[in-house]
Every structure is written in C-alpha cells, then in structure tokens.
Design a protein around this nucleic acid. Sequence first.
DNA 1: ATCAAATAGTTTGATATCAAACTATTTGAT
DNA 2: ATCAAATAGTTTGATATCAAACTATTTGAT
Lengths: 170, 170
Amino acid sequence: MSQGKKSSNPAGVPLDALLAQWRRERPDLDPAPMAVCGAVWRAYERLRQGLLANISPAGLDRPGFDVLLTLRRQGKGRALSPSGLAKEIMLSTSAMTNRLDRLEKKGLIERRSDPGDRRGLRIVLTEEGFALADRLVASHVAAQEAMLGALDEEERATLRRLLEKIADRP
Amino acid sequence: MSQGKKSSNPAGVPLDALLAQWRRERPDLDPAPMAVCGAVWRAYERLRQGLLANISPAGLDRPGFDVLLTLRRQGKGRALSPSGLAKEIMLSTSAMTNRLDRLEKKGLIERRSDPGDRRGLRIVLTEEGFALADRLVASHVAAQEAMLGALDEEERATLRRLLEKIADRP
DNA sequence: ATCAAATAGTTTGATATCAAACTATTTGAT
DNA sequence: ATCAAATAGTTTGATATCAAACTATTTGAT
C-alpha cells in the first residue's frame, strides 16, 4: 500500500553529482549528454507518477487507461479492433487480450464480433466505460496542466519543439 | 513551422491528430497540456530505444545496465549494498535480488559479505564487469550524443532547464 | 544484559509483459 | 473451386516486477 519512494527525485542522485563521478572516472568521455537524457527521463517519471495518481484510484493502470482514452476519443459508439488498439498503445496483441479481459470484467468495454470479418472483434466502451473515460480525461488534463504549471506558453512551445528534435531524429 | 509527421512515432497517432480528436469530443477541455506531455513521452521513448540498442547486444537490459554503470561510476573496487543499488535504480529490493542473481551468473558482479554487518552484502564489479561497463559507457554516451545531435549547446541547456521545471515541481 | 523493534536481503504469490504456438477465418494465386 | 499463405485474436511458456512474508542480524530503550 505504501509508496516508499521519494517523489521529488526520480533517481536518487542529483544529475550534477552523477556527471561529476563520471568526469572523475572517465575523463576521456564528455558526459554532458547524460544530463540532457537524464533530464528527459526525470521529467517523464514525474509525469508518469502524476498520471498514476490520477488513474489508480479508479482501479486502472496505464495500459487500461490508454485503452479507455483511445476508445473515448474516437467518439461515441466508435469501435476499434484489439490489434488496432494494440498498435496505438504499443502493446503486444497478447497483452491486449489480457487488458481487454480485465476491462471487460470491470464492465468498461465490450467485445463485439466484427460483422464483416468473423475472425475480428470490435471493442466499444460501455455506457459506464464512456462515463469513466469522460470523467478521468478531465482530471487527467487538469493534472497535466498542474504539472506544467511552472512553464509559460512560450516555454511550452519551446519545450515541444526541442523534444521533437529528439523524437523525430532517425 | 511544424514538421510534426514522422513515421517512427512511438505511439501511432501524430500528436496534432490526437489533439484534434479531443477538441472535437471534448470542446470544454483544453488539450494543450497533452501535447507537451506527449512530447516528453515520445522523446523518452526514443532515448529508451537507443539505450536498448546499445546494451541488448551485450545481453543486458535496462536495470542490469544501470547496476553496472552505478557500480562503475563509484570507482574501481568501490562497493554498494543491494538496497543502496535498489534505491538508486528505483527497483524493489526483491527485483534487485533477481538482477544481482543474473549479473552474478554472467560473472559481471560479485556478492561479498559486508565485514561490518553480517546481514549485509557489498556488491562489486568483477574484472570482467568493470571492463564491460567501461566499454558500454563509451558507446552509451556516443549514442546519446547522436540522439541529441539536432540540438546545439544552447538548446540543450534550455531543454534541461525547462525539463527540470517539470521534474522539480512539487 | 535483555529483548522488542528495526533493518538487510531472500523467498513467495500474484500479476504483467512478450514471443511463439495455436485455432479460426479470409485472401489471393491458380 | 481449391488450397497455401496471411491475418485476427487467444493461449502457452518464460521471465520480470512488486508487495508481503520470512530469516538472520543489529539497534536501542530499559
């Protein structure tokens, strides 16, 4: 039950101390990239923790929440196949089978057989799943907004641009 | 201004498309924070992929690599306890037991009993583990440098500063 | 000096992931 | 029309994580 981890510092050691150790041990290397990558990692961890705090009271974890939001943002009544969901959420199809089992058991989604392909399924939100997604996405965006609160609009735009330079690199 | 479409997309959908879906479905919410958080996540995923490409040829995974580097940067012959390692790497101590078993089996680390506390252990790199860490950290930093290649020095500093505003937020 | 509480590390039990094997169905070349 | 190959989703087997229970030892209050 207790989350015995420090929350302010994803990895225990301050980045500067870590770099100093490497400079001492490997003066032939320039450890500067570690600081940038470490900063990405720590921001990611912070955001992940905030996400978890938002969804775990509802008994959801990250992949389950992703399924709900992915379906919700398609619009009322829109469906996706398990493999389509797996691709968007970056899970294996076997993990998706498991996720869907759990969400179905909670009454949040429904497996319908695809009328056009008897191998296939169409996953839809139940009334209850739709309502939960609607409720959670609001607090989710609010939580994200709070975590970004130290950044003004211009800084957010800059941050996005710089991060995309990493993500889009071949 | 926006070069936003790339196929090596961590999650399948371009961020802009995702935001557009939310604006249609939930015009009452401002989904802008999702774009920033999504960008952090995608950069993180990119870096994670690059890391994995560097270490998996050596038969290591992320936590195993972290153990090696954490020990290596302490300096030759310096030791840490399993719980100290677990804290730095943010693994449970039970997961650490497992990691150490595997690394020990590969001959990369050694468990020595703590002379000052018979409950405790001191984990040290073997000669082979030290050499592997030394080899991998070099290619690791090189790989990171390559992934950051699109950013100049000033951009890197800015990126760090902005990310820390997220990570350090209470 | 004693002994309850704290601490270090391991084991156990529940659960998650992935890759590969599998079943059922569809597609496409002939 | 046939049937090998492709595809959709599930099951299986190996392995990882965590929390809680456990064993051995140390700490600290008395």
